[in-house]
Simulated scan of single mutants.
Amino acid sequence: MPTEQTESTRAASASVTGYRLILPDDWAQIPLRHGTEEAVRRILDEAFSRIPPGSPEDKIGPYKRELERRFRAAVGRAQEGKALDLYLPVRSVGNANLGASIVVSESRLPHRRGQAAHSEPTDVAMQLLSSDGAENADLSSGELDGALAVRREHIADADRGAALGSRRVEYVVSVPDDPDRWFAAAFSTVGGGDPRDELAEALVEWFDAVMATLRWRRG
């Protein structure tokens, strides 16, 4: 005889269809699969609306073009990585300073002939986090909303695509009830120009607090 399920039991048994993070109002979400252009246009229009009336057009025109170029470049880089969502501080966008970002993505591991159906989540998470060969990374693990989470923090040196080095923190989280599915959130900041400065430290602590708000959405 079947037993009656409570609302919480039904919610726990439903498959994960999404996620939720709580961020301050001055951070905006840009979806990267659908509705990207609408979100980009809305954020840019809001930034342009904060330009003081009567500002000289010979200065405002180049400013708008450079702001839009930098903003769209950040969105484009996230899309190249096939991410789900990009989060940017819209107040910084208005100041033409895109010095921090959060990129959310999802990975599904392929099955290979001759391998076990599923690998241990801890082993998979460590492999995913170390796949780019970053040295001197600070690794730790724990749980977020009941799911295994591995955290990595490291300093990325400046390269051809970035004028400054950056402080990066990544969380890779095993999606509940689906061993081959992984959620990833990657935070990056240049701090006040030095990824080791006090501003970078404070922003890393802030991102850790944001990740503590992760909750799964279930169908």
Results as ranks from 00 to 15, higher is better:
158 A>P: 07
191 G>D: 03
106 E>W: 06
113 R>P: 13
43 I>S: 08
176 P>I: 00
143 E>G: 04
65 R>A: 14
164 L>Q: 12
157 D>A: 14
170 E>V: 12
52 P>I: 10
137 A>C: 05
54 G>K: 00
109 L>E: 06
108 R>D: 13
102 I>A: 07
60 I>T: 09
195 P>C: 07
30 I>F: 05
86 L>F: 06
75 V>P: 07
189 T>C: 09
195 P>A: 05
117 A>R: 15
209 A>T: 12
68 E>V: 01
41 R>M: 12
111 H>P: 10
78 A>C: 05
156 A>Q: 13
67 L>P: 00
147 A>S: 15
163 A>L: 11
145 D>F: 03
52 P>R: 13
16 V>P: 09
11 A>P: 04
121 P>E: 03
190 V>I: 10
41 R>A: 14
21 L>I: 06
35 G>L: 07
209 A>D: 14
184 A>Y: 06
116 A>S: 11
42 R>Q: 11
180 D>V: 01
136 N>R: 10
189 T>S: 11
54 G>A: 04
14 A>H: 08
126 M>Q: 12
157 D>S: 11
188 S>H: 00
205 E>D: 15
23 L>N: 05
106 E>K: 09
26 D>Y: 07
214 L>Y: 04
210 V>N: 08
80 E>P: 08
204 V>Q: 08
103 V>K: 00
13 S>E: 15
38 E>S: 12
136 N>P: 04
16 V>E: 06
20 R>S: 14
70 R>G: 15
169 V>H: 00
190 V>M: 05
113 R>L: 15
127 Q>V: 09
138 D>Y: 05
214 L>S: 07
214 L>R: 02
201 E>M: 06
84 L>V: 08
125 A>Q: 04
112 R>H: 12
187 F>P: 00
173 V>K: 00
132 D>Q: 15
88 L>E: 01
